[in-house]
Design a protein around this nucleic acid. Sequence first.
DNA 1: CTATCATATCGATAATGATCGATATGACAA
DNA 2: TTGTCATATCGATCATTATCGATATGATAG
Lengths: 114, 114
Amino acid sequence: MDRSDALDCCAPGVEGIFEEVAAHDLAQVFAALADPVRLRLLSIVAAGGEVCSCNLEGPLNKRQSTISHHTSVLHSAGLLVGRRRGRWMYWSVVPERLAQVARVLDVELAGPLA
Amino acid sequence: MDRSDALDCCAPGVEGIFEEVAAHDLAQVFAALADPVRLRLLSIVAAGGEVCSCNLEGPLNKRQSTISHHTSVLHSAGLLVGRRRGRWMYWSVVPERLAQVARVLDVELAGPLA
DNA sequence: CTATCATATCGATAATGATCGATATGACAA
DNA sequence: TTGTCATATCGATCATTATCGATATGATAG
């Protein structure tokens, strides 16, 4: 529950320097990506299109409560969306969000010098 | 001291799914980005081109030892390079590294579905 | 209704890391 | 050499979080 996009643009202030709130929000997204289990989870969902939680415990070798925790973190970061189908939860990646974060790295940070 | 690039390509294994070591290395890079102070530090250096450590304590409002810690983390992640000039340390971003990480998000994770 | 199954939440533990003050290293000036 | 200044490292504290087992929620089947 934290999808306020302070990162989708250009904070005013000193010439391209991140302001504190924007940096805080962006850091949360990177924190969601800063775990090997979550990165593998993301790659599995990206490759599978729509993947059930129950099909993640095996490949990731983690307990159900741990998987639920990780999907929750990725969802809060706006990187995953979930859809209920009966008792099952199916997860998909949010490509626009990933592209948005990629752009911050590529344009806002690498760009000025590249 | 951890710039082994397991992320610059395509681990073999199951169809685009990150293997554990690659995920571990990539997670370390994102962990370096997962701090608001470091993100602001990066943006200051990106905007300034080559910035002295001594010019970071003020804008970031952190002590010298804390700044040194953060530059060290970013350097270990390959995101910053440092150059000594007399007693001063000047830092620059590594645009190729940032672009490389951006590509992982944009191509390997967002790509398959976008 | 009750039973069952998939997922979510809770509580505890252990590990990681951000921050600071204090100290060490290393470079320049005199 | 000695003194000074910028940076690096050390040690401690506090906060965050990954993980698990146990339990709660919620949906389907009978």
